[in-house]
Design a protein around this nucleic acid. Structure first.
Lengths: 186, 186
DNA sequence: GTCTATAAGCGGATAGAC
DNA sequence: GTCTATCCGCTTATAGAC
């Protein structure tokens, strides 16, 4: 179970893109961080930085979705589960703020109008998050179309609260999002 | 009432930073777009790109806040006013999506951990948006602490919905945010 | 105050040895 | 598959003429 240069490149890129965005992260920085040689980068990712970004976004999105699903499994009731998940995010954010960033968001905003492959990867990622929430709501008895709608609304709320918490260095927006979830799902 | 080089630089920078983010926008691009000469840039903004970004964020934030206030003045009831404002944003976004971007957000995400002056400017901007919403809620009879809380929640919701709409090229997230505002303010 | 020329460095990408 | 050397373009920033 060894980690290849390819894996090391993607995971380093995922971290750095999330922290500094797409244009703010140079390939040299990714190479240094990953310990991989430049030759390997273009061997594994012939389309260069853009391809690396697409795969990084996909990896990040899978991790986040898995984390959402794990979080929502903690409680049976959907409303409590979603509320608890956001609170959990708020709490763990308080600890290692500096090492995280907002998943996908920076890359999405920077590249949406200029790289269709990256934009599509971000869109798919977001759809995955929404599905995870909708799935939980379905299981809790919400009607299908309503559950899908609320998946989008909850995702909006979390992304926005995360953006504000990250920018201000204060987890209050996330805590308030959690607090107001029950009203939204009423 | 002529527009100075300084004004032209800031307004060009505001547009480009919003569309492409901080690191994705070069000074040369800003200069070309504004028509100002490079000498003027460092004459008016001795601290260079960082200072230009701070002032651009401030300008953008003022415009957005003014637009929020104008939007909220359209209806007397706070709930209807906020809902209407988000719908208005969703509709106008449908038209000229490509020329806008999400105000402040890209710059905030890219620079929060690496430039304190820019981060602070973004934070102040967001606080202004929240005040505008809270003010309207106060006038509509909401209790002070509740109004301030909801200002943050509404701002989160809008920012997140805007991010998703921009990334997916579809205004559905904004429309759903508007639709679900009444439940939130219940 | 305005403009040009240029410095110094980093960006992404490639060639070619091994 | 791995690594180095290198190219070219664009970046921020500065110097100095006008």
């Amino acid at each position: 179970m060894k980690e290849t240069s390819r894996d090391k490149l993607i995971s380093a890129a995922s971290r750095l893109f999330q922290l500094q965005g797409y244009h703010g992260t140079g390939l040299n920085h990714i190479l240094k961080e990953s310990g991989a040689p430049k030759g390997s980068l273009y061997y594994y990712f012939p389309d260069g930085k853009e391809q690396l970004a697409v795969e990084s976004v996909q990896l990040t999105a899978e991790h986040v979705r898995a984390r959402i699903e794990r979080g929502l499994d903690q409680k049976k009731d959907a409303v409590e589960a979603i509320q608890g998940f956001i609170e959990e995010m708020a709490n763990q954010y308080q600890n290692d703020r500096s090492q995280e960033g907002v998943p996908i968001a920076a890359v999405a905003l920077e590249t949406a109008l200029f790289s269709e492959p990256i934009r599509t990867a971000c869109q798919s990622g977001y759809e995955g998050f929404q599905e995870a929430f909708a799935e939980k709501l379905l299981q809790s008895g919400f009607e299908e179309s309503r559950a899908r709608e609320l998946g989008i609304v909850i995702n909006s709320m979390i992304e926005g609260a995360f953006l504000l918490s990250f920018t201000t260095g204060n987890n209050e927006p996330l805590l308030l999002a959690a607090k107001n979830i029950p009203a939204l799902l009423k």
